[in-house]
């Protein structure tokens, strides 16, 4: 379970960007090809943030489905629940990942000063 230590990294980013203002929501993007469990991350965040300056700041997760582009047929397709890197249009395996590797803090909501 690495979600706990990842929450430490999120807290570092948020602290730096919030610069002392109260944070109400933190928007995080997680790509499907990341080995990060959103529910676990949210749970760990509630533990890590409790009784800190971020107590009550909600972690909002946007999941990004994995999409691949086939070099053979040039189709861009979404992979299924198991991220097989096989073109669903032509079964080609010469594919590149278009999306699904995201893992970032996209934005955050700050309370009125």
């Amino acid at each position: 379970m690495h979600e706990l230590s990842i929450c430490g990294s999120i807290a570092d980013i948020v602290a730096r960007r919030a610069a002392g203002r109260r944070v109400t929501k933190i928007h995080v993007q997680i790509g499907q090809l990341r080995q990060i469990v959103p529910d676990t991350l949210v749970y760990c965040w509630s533990m890590v943030s409790a009784e800190t300056q971020f107590d009550g700041a909600e972690l909002v997760v946007d999941r990004v489905p994995a999409r691949i582009r086939c070099r053979d047929c040039e189709e861009t397709t979404e992979v299924g629940d198991i991220p097989l890197l096989v073109c669903t249009a032509c079964n080609g395996i010469s594919v590149s990942v278009v999306s699904g590797e995201e893992f970032m803090v996209t934005s955050m909501d700050l309370a009125e000063v």
Binding site: S9, I13, T24, D109, A111
Partner: peptide, 15 residues
């Protein structure tokens, strides 16, 4: 909303 949304766009594994 009264508050403010700021863009961050920072990779969590950046550090």
């Amino acid at each position: 909303t009264g508050g403010e949304r700021i863009q961050v766009l920072e990779r969590i594994f950046g550090e």
